[in-house]
Amino acid sequence: MKIAGLSIARGGAPVLEGVSFELTPGRALILRGPNGCGKTTLLRTIAGLQPPLAGTITGAEEDIAYAAHSDGIKLTLTVGENLTFWAEIFAAGSIEPALDAFDLRGLLDRPAGALSAGQKRRLGLARLLVTGRRYWILDEPTVSLDRASVQQFAGVVERHLADGGAALIATHIDLGLEGETLDVSQFKAKLPDLEEFDEAFL
C-alpha cells in the first residue's frame, strides 16, 4: 500500500498535508503524535471513510480492515453471534481462529452486554481476524486492555505480519512490535495564504 502526497481535513480545516509513506506486507507502521494532530482523521481517510483533499492511496483497494474506538458490537447478541455476523459480511470463513487468538471461547454464548470493557475490546479486535483482510488500520487498539491482553494482541499482530499481513497502528503505548515509527506531526498542514483564501474558505 502506497500513500502519496496525502492532504486531509477535519471539520473543513486542513490538518495534515504531504503525507507519504509505504506499507509493505510483513511490516507494521506505528503512527505517533500529540492528541488532535490528525492521526484518527488520517486513518479514517486511508480506510476510505472520508475523501482526501489531495493525494492518492493505492494498492490496498478492498483489502483494508479498520478498527477504531467503537467496535460495532451489538449488546443483545452473544459473542459468537457478533463474530459470526462479521465473518459472514466479509465472507471470510470460520470464527474459530479468532476465538482462540483472543481467548474468547469461554465467553462464546455470553451476551456482549454482559462483557467488561476489556472483554468487549478483545471481541472488537477479534473481528479483524474474521475479515480475512491484509491491511489492518488500527486506531488506539489497546484502549481498556490490561497488560496481559496487550501482550496477547501484540502476539496476534505479529502472527498477522508473519502471514504476510501489514498493520498501520496509531498508539501511545509500546507494543514491542518490530516496525518503523512515523511521527505524524511533521506533516502538520501550514495555513494557506490569506490571499489564496478564496474558493474553499480554508
Binding site: A65, H69, S70, F90, R127
Partner: peptide, 16 residues
C-alpha cells in the same frame, strides 16, 4: 443505533 456503536463505519469499510 448502528451509528452510535460504530457499526456503520465498519459496514462502510466492508465488501457490502
Amino acid at each position: 443505533l448502528d451509528w452510535e456503536d460504530g457499526t456503520l463505519d465498519l459496514m462502510a469499510t466492508s465488501p457490502l
